[in-house]
């Protein structure tokens, strides 16, 4: 009798653990693109006030960014789902490449470097996303000045 209770208890724990483990992945699969895109939009709006970025460009950039940075896509998604208090309590903020600032810098930098922003001397109100660069040139430097022969 006792053994069967223990077995039931064990199975319940296993089931609960599985749900907890699989849940984030499930949420991610069902809802990842819109959530991540929303987070990207919030970050760009916050740091580029008064600039105009087409919604289609934000969606395209978000998709490109998280294809290249698939390593942080799931973490970022969970981050975007969790309430700030829970994030801090769970230590999740620390896990995400240090601090949330870093994610914001990563996203803002990638977007600006792959847009016409610096080509237009950062003065134009509308920013056009140029699309993903190749993996090889992922850290291109638009400010570099070269020697001429």
């Amino acid at each position: 009798m006792n053994k069967s209770i223990e077995r039931r208890k064990f199975l319940k724990i296993c089931a609960a653990t599985s749900i907890v483990a699989v849940l984030p992945l499930g949420i991610y699969v069902l809802d990842n693109e819109s959530r991540l895109c929303q987070l990207v939009e919030e970050i760009l709006t916050k740091h580029l006030p008064g600039r105009i970025i087409l919604q289609a460009d934000i969606e395209k950039f978000s998709k490109d960014f998280f294809i290249e940075r698939y390593d942080i896509a799931l973490k970022t998604h969970i981050f975007s789902v969790l309430a700030p208090l829970v994030r801090v309590a769970s230590g999740f903020d620390e896990d995400l490449h240090g601090k949330i600032d870093n994610l914001e810098r990563m996203i803002l930098t990638k977007f600006l470097l792959n847009s016409d922003f610096f080509a237009n001397d950062a003065k134009k109100k509308t920013i056009i996303y140029n699309g993903a660069t190749s993996n090889i040139c992922r850290t291109k430097n638009p400010f570099a000045q070269f020697l001429t022969p």
Binding site: E104, L112, T139, N141
Partner: peptide, 9 residues
Amino acid sequence: NRIKHGLRL
């Protein structure tokens, strides 16, 4: 001279 940790915010 590389943008290693990102631009400033």
